[in-house]
Structure formats: structure tokens, C-alpha cells
Nucleic acid binder design. Structure first.
Length: 232
DNA sequence: AAATCTTGCAACCGCTCTTCA
DNA sequence: CTGAAGAGCGGTTGCAAGATT
């Protein structure tokens, strides 16, 4: 005995919702409240899948939904939250009143992923220039402990299962497989302004889709530390 | 002006998680 | 503990509208 499907594949309306359908759904939910999505369509007189009704209500009909015009502040928040949470659209949406996970996901896929792709290229170019430049007149506050690193999602996934590198010998550690420890610093802790003060790049331009990882084990942090303090 | 391509977004699908009997 | 139902999530698709050729 399998589980019952949300709705039959045939006989229900699909595609764009009509005004009348929206009205029926809104009226029903205002009277009876949300929930029981499977049986709602029949009770509300809708020839729709319950799942479809839920989606329509959550993303468009629910009171307080904002549509379009993502403000610069909201965009900035989305970028920051995405860096922290990844593709957890519902969690990100939870921090943006009136915005839905679907809208944020669409916005990310159509605008921000492209924008950030460009920014990452700019970032690597900037880092390259910094490292190869003849004059490096910057003063960077040196952190004494590395307690946090930003890793690419793949590496983050790898490390999540091993909070510490598998080898106690740094040279054998997979950490060295990272292209450059410089790329993995959490600049918020050591002062990105100093690093880029002579470049044309703004701190706000330094945005990359990275996974933030905290090291709760101090010994573990120290294993990583020399990889990046050597660079400073 | 017509055909084709691109883009943005609403909606769908399949899966997982939670709840409850 | 188990399994079914309810709910939610994230990836993907399909289509309309605008842009380009």
C-alpha cells in the first residue's frame, strides 16, 4: 500500500490560476482557515490539486505578500543570508517579511546567481593582482586565532563530516588541496578594508557563494592557522 | 512584419520531514 | 515501533512576453 498521491494526474485544472479560482480559494480560507489541503479543493469547489492550492495561497493570495521590486537592502540581505544558509530559501524568506521562498529562489536564479558569478571573477582577479603587485602597502590586522573559515560548498560538505582534517600533519591534510588559503579567509575578522584599500574594489563587492564554517575545536583551528597567517 | 531566441516567473514535481493513530 | 497522511522544501519546467535577427 503506497501513499495516496496529492491528486490525480487527470481531471484537475493546471497552469495559471483564474480570478474566479483565486476568489474561491481566498474566500474558503478566510472562512475555514488554512490546512487540510488535500480535502480543501473539493470543499472550496475548486477543481485543483490540494498542493496547488497551498502553493497559490502561500505565494500569492496570503495577506501581506509583497510582489516585485526587491529593494537594494533586501537584495543585500538575500546575498548575505545565502552565503550563510545556502539554498535554504524558506529560511531566507523567513527573514524577509512579505517575501516568499519561491520569489527569492526565482530572484536568485535569474539575477543574483549571474551577478555573483561576475563578482567572483572580479574577486579572483583582485586577489591575483594583490598577490602579484609590486607594492603591497597595506597593513592588515593579524588575527591571533582562526576560529572561522569560509569554504566553497563542496569543501564545506567534505569538512562537515570531519570537523578536523583527517591528518594531523598539515602537509598531508586535504587543506593543502585548497587552491589558496587566502581565498578562504573570513575577511570580516581580519579587516578586508586593509587588504583592498589600494584597489578599486569595494568591500561590498567581495561577495562569493561560500559556506561559513565555525571551528569549535581550538586545536583544529590552529592547524589551519599557519596556512593563512603566512600570507599576511 | 514575421520568425526566432531569450528571459522571467508562476506553477509543478518529487522528495523529505513531521505528526499522529 | 510503524506506516499513512499532512505539510513543506528545493529543483525544474513550461509558457508568455519582450528582444533580437
Amino acid at each position: 500500500m503506497g501513499r495516496k498521491p496529492w491528486c490525480g494526474k487527470e481531471g484537475v485544472n493546471r497552469g495559471a490560476w483564474s480570478l474566479k479560482e483565486d476568489e474561491l480559494l481566498s474566500n474558503y480560507i478566510q472562512l475555514h482557515g488554512e490546512g487540510k489541503w488535500r480535502t480543501l479543493p473539493q470543499s472550496a469547489g475548486l477543481n485543483r490539486c490540494g498542493k496547488s492550492c497551498r502553493l497559490r495561497w502561500m505565494n500569492y493570495l496570503r495577506p501581506g505578500i509583497k510582489r516585485g521590486n526587491i529593494s537594494p537592502d533586501e537584495e543585500d540581505l538575500i546575498i548575505r543570508l545565502h552565503r550563510l544558509l545556502g539554498n535554504r530559501w524558506s529560511l531566507i524568506a523567513g527573514r524577509l517579511p512579505g517575501r516568499t521562498d519561491n520569489e527569492i529562489k526565482n530572484y536568485w536564479n535569474t539575477f543574483l546567481s549571474k551577478k555573483l558569478h561576475t563578482d567572483v571573477s572580479k574577486t579572483f582577479e583582485c586577489v591575483r593582482k594583490y598577490k602579484s603587485g609590486p607594492t603591497r602597502k597595506v597593513i592588515v590586522p593579524k588575527a591571533t586565532h582562526c576560529t572561522k573559515m569560509l569554504l566553497s560548498v563542496d569543501e564545506g560538505d567534505h569538512l562537515k563530516s570531519n570537523q578536523c582534517p583527517p591528518s594531523s600533519t598539515p602537509s598531508e591534510s586535504h587543506v593543502l588541496n585548497m587552491p589558496n588559503a587566502f581565498d578562504y579567509l573570513d575577511f570580516s575578522e581580519i579587516g578586508i578594508e586593509g587588504i583592498f584599500e589600494n584597489s578599486n574594489m569595494l568591500e561590498t563587492d567581495f561577495v562569493a557563494p561560500m559556506f561559513e564554517m565555525d571551528f569549535h575545536n581550538p586545536a583544529c583551528s590552529l592547524q589551519f592557522e599557519h596556512h593563512w597567517t603566512d600570507l599576511l
